[in-house]
Amino acid sequence: MSVKHALLSLLEQEPMYGYQLRQEFEARTGGTWPLNVGQVYTTLTRLERDGLVEPAAHDETAGPDGDDATRTATQTQVRYRLTDAGRDEVATWFTTPVTRSQPARDELAIKLALAVTVPGVDVGTLIQRQRSASMQALQDYTRLKRQAGGEQERADLAWGLVLDSLVFAAEAEIRWLDHCEARLRRAAREGSAAGGAR
């Protein structure tokens, strides 16, 4: 997950403090990927170094803290805003597809690939246990969706979409497990038929 781009895009909305960025991020994603404060400040430091953000000037900090004291205080009291380069970076991020070079669910795929080749593994049970576990996760997400309810707030809508993403991913995993099971059963049938013909 790109913390860098997430923070930059939040700053597109308005200049913000570090703690605010963290709150805003979690409001939109329902705390699915919690950010720690340290991570936020480290990232901001790097972004400032790279010229993508800068401390906001007083006239742009609409809040009451936009005086000289803020500028000289610790980082926690600095409100950041995007530079032009930062704004370009956000625009590029939103118009570039996410690369899928690292398949997300490789542990399960690898486990299954090994299970069907290593002798003595009960693949059917492995699949069924995984399916039950994935189904339970899917039920949990669905319960969260039911509780989420209204989508009047933009951030609620965002959180609803994040939940949908988790739901569709879990569903895809279960469909894939069903598919594996069907293929393995067919292979077993064909295997025993070939064995009988010999």
């Binding site: 039950s132 994935s134 899917l138 997400y141 669905t142 879990a170 569903e171």
Partner: peptide
């Protein structure tokens, strides 16, 4: 046969 729909249930029987 849709897991996403089954997930609305309290229990899922396979």
């Amino acid at each position: 046969h849709e897991a996403r729909h089954a997930a609305w249930a309290d229990r899922v029987v396979f």
